[in-house]
């Protein structure tokens, strides 16, 4: 695994990113209407580890999130899950899709 120490800092540029509050309890995974296993806790842990490649490989999952906040409203850690997913989207648009001006 290649670690990018600047990755987490880059995500903060897209807005609030507070995934460090995640306790890895799995409530979000159990509640997700899409049943996407990677969303959101595994994805957030990849981000916190600086595993940029693992996050970029999950583009479809990142853009599949409904932002419906069913997980966030029931998160015992109070993680701002929807805003974190938005930060990942902003990062992908800026750094991968070349949509910095869009």
């Amino acid at each position: 695994m290649k670690v990018d120490p600047q990755f987490l800092t880059s995500l903060h540029l897209g807005g609030e990113f507070d995934a460090q509050r995640c306790m890895n309890c799995g409530t979000c995974t159990a509640l997700c209407p899409l049943g996407v296993e990677i969303l959101p806790r595994k994805l957030f842990h990849y981000a916190m580890l600086g595993n940029r490649e693992a996050v970029l490989g999950q583009e479809e999952a990142i853009f599949s999130c409904l932002l419906c906040k069913l997980c966030e409203s029931n998160c015992p850690g109070g993680v701002h899950i929807a805003e974190n997913v938005r930060s990942l989207r902003t990062y992908l648009n800026r750094e991968v899709h070349g949509l910095a001006e869009a």
């Binding site: 989207r89 648009n93 949509l99």
Partner: peptide, 9 residues
């Protein structure tokens, strides 16, 4: 645009 992370636009 907000939901999809198009923050500059």
């Amino acid at each position: 645009a907000h939901d999809e992370g198009l923050d500059r636009a």
